[in-house]
Design a protein around this nucleic acid. Structure first.
Lengths: 126, 126
DNA sequence: GGCACTCATGCGCACATGCGCATACGAGCG
DNA sequence: CGCTCGTATGCGCATGTGCGCATGAGTGCC
């Protein structure tokens, strides 16, 4: 198994959380303190602190003391950019699903008998 | 919480596995049957089948019967491309870490007292 | 020094996940 | 039909994760 693959899986694992994505989304707009962040996203302070600790360990965010507060910011915009690329892809797919269901369902001309039984449920809100 | 964010987290969760990344890496080179895939990556057949089922549910791969066998292929190269963007970023960071540790450690000129205590362990094989 | 504030950490619980294993399903073939 | 091959599924266990909650640690102010 490739080293990079394992590393990538670990980073992806850290990113695979709505809360953390929300936090990253906020951090993309600039550095912010823990408490403020917790208030903004409507989560408890310990919860946010834990998520930040996880992401800091993974090298995704950095922390810096500012008086009594601790400000967090993105370590490297590149990872987040890659994340945003994926996000845009999903938005496109999501939008396409929307227009498909709103259309008259133009009955796929040739349907060469796929083995895939079910529509990807994850794309319609699982 | 944004809909897309939740969706993205789910997709990321599916991707956050070394095995699945390995499978996707293989599928990027073309469609392949389950058994062959299991042999190539050195995993059990049920295990591979389960991973494929998860990824199919997430809409990342598609399956197609071919005689007795079932061939899997990527649904949309775009998601994998986004994944590869991240991979390349990580490779770059990894390589940089390597040259840093092999260099004479040029003693950071100004070290403005960060609150971040530890190096990102995830980048040095956690 | 004592207090108030901000953040980090430890604990316990509920829940999800991955794996091996055995086995069921489904298609071709004789 | 019955057999074999390829794939999917169910089960049980060990392990990991997120959350609330209470509490500890560090900092600034009086």
């Amino acid at each position: 198994m490739d080293e990079i693959t394992i590393l990538q899986a670990e980073v992806l694992k850290v990113l695979a959380s709505p809360r953390r994505l929300e936090i990253l989304h906020r951090l993309a707009e600039g550095s912010v303190e823990v408490g403020r962040l917790a208030t903004e996203i409507g989560a408890s302070q310990p919860n946010v602190s834990q998520h930040l600790a996880v992401m800091r360990t993974a090298g995704i965010v950095e922390s810096e003391r500012d008086g009594r507060e601790v400000r967090y910011r993105l370590t490297d915009p590149d990872v987040i950019r890659a994340c945003d690329v994926m996000r845009r892809v999903l938005e496109r797919r999501f939008a396409r699903l929307g227009e498909l269901s709103s259309a008259t369902t133009p009955a796929p001309s040739v349907s060469p008998r796929r083995a895939t039984p079910s529509r990807p449920v994850a794309l319609v809100r699982s």
